[in-house]
């Protein structure tokens, strides 16, 4: 059994379990949505004194911060106890495309060209991570949700705003992948 769990999980199993998490949160009386945590962190750091957007009862969102802490622990458990340590297997076509951009074949879950201290210590490497973070933090609050809040919770509730947001996610993702990647990598 444990050997089976250590293998990468099939998309159907993964998708079904994510739906299960969403239902679990609904039965806990909450709506599954991760990116609200960034607003909560700003508010908890006292941003509400300067900016009214952060002036609210952030302590009512402690449950979501608890979920965030759990997700870090879950990542650690998966890495230490539930993984084979084998490099991730991806489509040949993708391997070829990213090789053309200068990425070597995967050695783990993430490319060392972006996610390593060596990369972080270069100006370009630092800017990639910093800009990436800014875009995620700004964009998710402007759109009022991320993949969990819009693509999973929102689409499950058949909400039009979430469909518009997901279309936006793809417009941005395709612009980055096909127009900006060739310029920066």
């Amino acid at each position: 059994m444990i050997e089976l769990i250590k293998q990468p999980w099939h998309w159907f199993i993964s998708g079904a379990l994510i739906a299960f998490i969403m239902f679990m949160m609904l039965f806990f009386g909450k709506t599954f949505g991760f990116s609200s945590n960034f607003r909560t962190i700003c508010a908890a750091c006292g941003a509400g004194k300067r900016v009214s957007y952060f002036d609210y009862d952030w302590k009512s969102q402690m449950w979501n911060l608890a979920f965030l802490v759990g997700s870090i622990i879950g990542g650690t458990i998966a890495h230490l106890f539930l993984s084979t340590g084998e490099p991730i297997l991806i489509a040949q076509a993708t391997l070829k495309d990213i090789a053309d951009l200068g990425f070597s074949a995967p050695t783990g879950m993430q490319p060392t060209e972006i996610y390593s201290f060596q990369a972080l210590m270069t100006v370009k490497g630092f800017l990639i991570l910093a800009f990436g973070g800014l875009l995620i933090g700004f964009g998710t609050r402007y759109a009022a949700g991320c993949t969990s809040g819009h693509a999973i919770s929102g689409l499950s509730n058949l909400q039009l705003p979430s469909l518009i947001a997901v279309i936006g996610f793809f417009i941005g993702g395709l612009i980055m992948t096909f127009l900006i990647f060739p310029l920066i990598f």
Binding site: G75, I136, F138, Y142, A143, S148, G168, L174
Partner: peptide, 29 residues
């Protein structure tokens, strides 16, 4: 707001290869 905000987030999602939840899961990973 959904189209513009979504597009800005999509740029960051593709660049970092991570949406908000996975940022923290990766940190733990």
């Amino acid at each position: 707001r959904y189209l513009a905000g979504g597009t800005i987030f999509g740029l960051g999602w593709a660049l970092t290869g991570s949406c908000p939840g996975p940022l923290f899961v990766n940190f733990g990973y």
